[in-house]
Amino acid sequence: MKEVQEAKDCPAKKARGTFAPFQKLSCYLSTIENLPKLYAICVCLIIVFGLCSVPFISYEEDQLYPKSLDPSSSLDPYDRGGVPFTEPAVIIAQYPENAPAIGYVTAYLTPLSQFLADYTFHLGTTIVAHPGGILDEILYYTRGFDTIVEASILFCAFAIAAFLYRRSKE
C-alpha cells in the first residue's frame, strides 16, 4: 500500500529550499486524487462568503407560479382553480404571450382523478402522478425545455452505464 502511495507522489514532495512550499503546492495541485477535495474547499470558501452575505439577500415577493394553500380543497396544495376543458386556471408565467393554451393543463383532471377529487379529500397528495395539474403545466408546457434537457441527461447517463455494462459482458 505504501509503495502504491509513493508511486503516486511526485518527486517535488521531498523538495527543499526557498521554493519548497511552491513545489509542494504544485505537487498537491497535480495529483488527481486531490481534485475533489480541492473543489470542495473552493465551494466551502464561497459558501462561507455566502453565509456572511445572507443578511443582504432579500426575498422577492413577486414570484412566478406562486403557491397558494387552501386546506379545504381536496386538491389542496395544487388547487389553482379552473374547470377542465372550459375555463383555464390563472397562472403567472414569465412570458404568457408565448403560451396561448396556458392554464388548461393545470385545470385538467382525468375522469378518474375527478372522481377521486369529488369523493375524497386527499387527491392533492397524488395529483403529481395523474396527467394534468400545475406541475405538468410547468414541466411539459411553459418550461418544457428543462424537462427535455433533464430527460436527455438521464438518457445519456444510461447510455454510458449500459455501454460499460454491455461491454463487460462480452
Binding site: 511526485c10 517535488a12 511552491f22 513545489q23 503546492l25 504544485s26 505537487c27 495541485l29 497535480s30
Partner: peptide, 9 residues
C-alpha cells in the same frame, strides 16, 4: 509544466 500552472494560478 506544473510550475507554469502554479505561477499562473
Amino acid at each position: 509544466p506544473y510550475n507554469t500552472v502554479l505561477i499562473q494560478t
